[in-house]
Design a protein around this nucleic acid. Structure first.
Lengths: 136, 136
DNA sequence: ATAAAGGATGGAGTATAGTCCAGAGTCAAG
DNA sequence: CTTGACTCTGGACTATACTCCATCCTTTAT
């Protein structure tokens, strides 16, 4: 059982942010002490690290909340909706992966054009670097 | 030469947003008509699409501004700084790519657990799906 | 010639995601 | 039994990225 400060230092998320996430339904301490202190379990650490990953990926707290709420049971009526929601998110992630790789390539080209690198000097701006791989 | 409305509909970015980007130095029309209308060139379309990609990737407008400002000339003093800045961004992108793939895998697992898929029912939440590939 | 469509400026308002107090209670160590 | 570290709540404040006016000017079509 972790108090808020312990969870904060384990995850690198501030106490205020943890309370903020709680207010928005992303994480709730399973119990409280008699005096009202929040008590988190070990799995809450995973929950937070999921939230952090998902944020990194570009999901909003709202979307992350929805993802965390999802529970698939094979026979449930809502199953189709859940699958659709998740598959939609996969598409979003795929699109971002594509943009990501495009930009990474441009950054690499730009980095190579620099300091006696092997790329021609025409790639001397990020737009130049991008266009080489993007247009044509 | 495009007026703001034309650029807006070509890029899918609103007029207000274009003016907002201008205020923040991300894009500036090369000229204005006598009456003060903004006139954009065709390369401004690429500029906007770069901004959109970079946003998708998770860069802030501030970072995008810096990326767009970059100009590498092989002999410049600032060359090292530019390279360092760009290489740093590449690291950031790499980290996001990793998170991205992790989450994509979790979403896929979750999707498969659903509606008579082939994954066991233990993966019935996003955290369950994530932990399978993440812990152990 | 005039109305509708589009553009300009400046400023207010909104959503998201925190961040930072103030004031008060709690707990562990010396 | 007090001091210092930690926690609680509620509310104010901040940064980012738009978005939406109001008011006025310009252009285009009829």
């Amino acid at each position: 059982m972790l108090k808020i400060g312990a969870l904060a230092s384990l995850t690198g998320v501030s106490r205020d942010t943890l309370r903020f996430y709680e207010k928005h339904g992303l994480i709730t301490p399973g119990t409280r002490t008699v005096s009202g202190y929040r008590l988190y379990s070990k799995t809450d650490v995973y929950r937070i690290s999921f939230i952090l990953s998902a944020k990194e990926v570009g999901f909003t707290l709202n979307e992350i909340h929805q993802l965390l709420e999802l529970e698939v049971t094979k026979d449930e009526k809502s199953c189709h909706d859940v699958k659709q929601f998740v598959d939609n998110k996969i598409q979003v992630v795929n699109q971002r992966l594509i943009e990501m790789k495009k930009i990474k390539q441009s950054l690499k080209t730009l980095s190579n054009a620099c300091c006696g690198g092997d790329e021609p000097a025409t790639h001397c701006t990020i737009l130049g670097a991008l266009s080489t791989h993007n247009r044509q």
